[in-house]
Amino acid sequence: AEKTGIVNVSSSLNVREGASTSSKVIGSLSGNTKVTIVGEEGAFYKIEYKGSHGYVAKEYIKDIKDE
């Protein structure tokens, strides 16, 4: 049951290796980017990222929809 969301930041949002603010940053997404959410862990969504997965803070994702 995948969902999509939109990155809701003015600059960019860090994509992390794990569901923690201390996890390594593996990339970033600019505002209004559409993401595919494959799961959630605590305050983070697990998303599809560059052929693999990454984690982003839930508070910066809006317009969550079921695909």
Rank of each mutant, 00 (worst) to 15 (best):
A1K: 06
A1Y: 11
A1L: 12
E2D: 11
E2A: 14
K3F: 06
T4A: 07
T4W: 05
G5S: 04
I6R: 09
I6C: 08
I6H: 06
V7L: 04
V7M: 03
V7G: 03
N8H: 13
N8D: 09
V9F: 04
V9Y: 03
V9C: 07
S10R: 10
S11Y: 10
S11H: 10
S11Q: 13
S11L: 12
S12H: 14
L13C: 09
L13F: 03
L13K: 02
N14A: 14
N14S: 15
V15K: 00
V15E: 00
R16V: 08
R16T: 12
R16F: 15
E17K: 07
G18A: 14
G18C: 09
G18M: 14
A19T: 07
A19L: 04
S20D: 12
S20G: 07
S20V: 05
S20Q: 07
T21S: 15
S22Y: 08
S23E: 05
S23T: 08
K24I: 08
K24A: 13
K24D: 06
V25P: 04
V25H: 04
I26V: 08
I26D: 00
G27K: 01
S28L: 13
S28K: 14
S28Q: 14
S28E: 12
S28C: 06
L29F: 04
L29P: 00
L29N: 00
S30C: 07
S30P: 14
S30H: 15
S30D: 11
N32H: 12
T33A: 15
K34R: 14
V35L: 05
T36D: 05
T36E: 05
T36Y: 15
T36N: 09
I37D: 00
I37C: 02
I37N: 00
V38W: 09
V38R: 04
V38S: 05
E40I: 08
E40L: 06
E40T: 08
E41F: 10
G42M: 05
G42V: 03
G42R: 05
G42F: 05
G42P: 03
F44T: 02
F44A: 03
Y45M: 03
Y45S: 02
K46L: 12
K46T: 03
K46Y: 08
K46S: 03
K46M: 10
E48P: 10
E48W: 10
Y49P: 00
K50I: 07
H53F: 15
G54Q: 01
G54S: 03
Y55F: 11
Y55R: 00
Y55A: 01
Y55I: 01
Y55P: 00
V56Y: 00
V56M: 02
A57C: 06
K58L: 03
K58D: 01
E59W: 07
Y60P: 02
Y60R: 05
Y60F: 13
I61P: 01
I61Q: 01
K62R: 13
K62T: 13
K62H: 12
D63T: 13
D63E: 15
I64D: 07
I64Y: 10
K65T: 13
K65S: 12
D66V: 08
D66H: 09
D66N: 11
D66Y: 07
D66E: 13
D66T: 11
E67R: 07
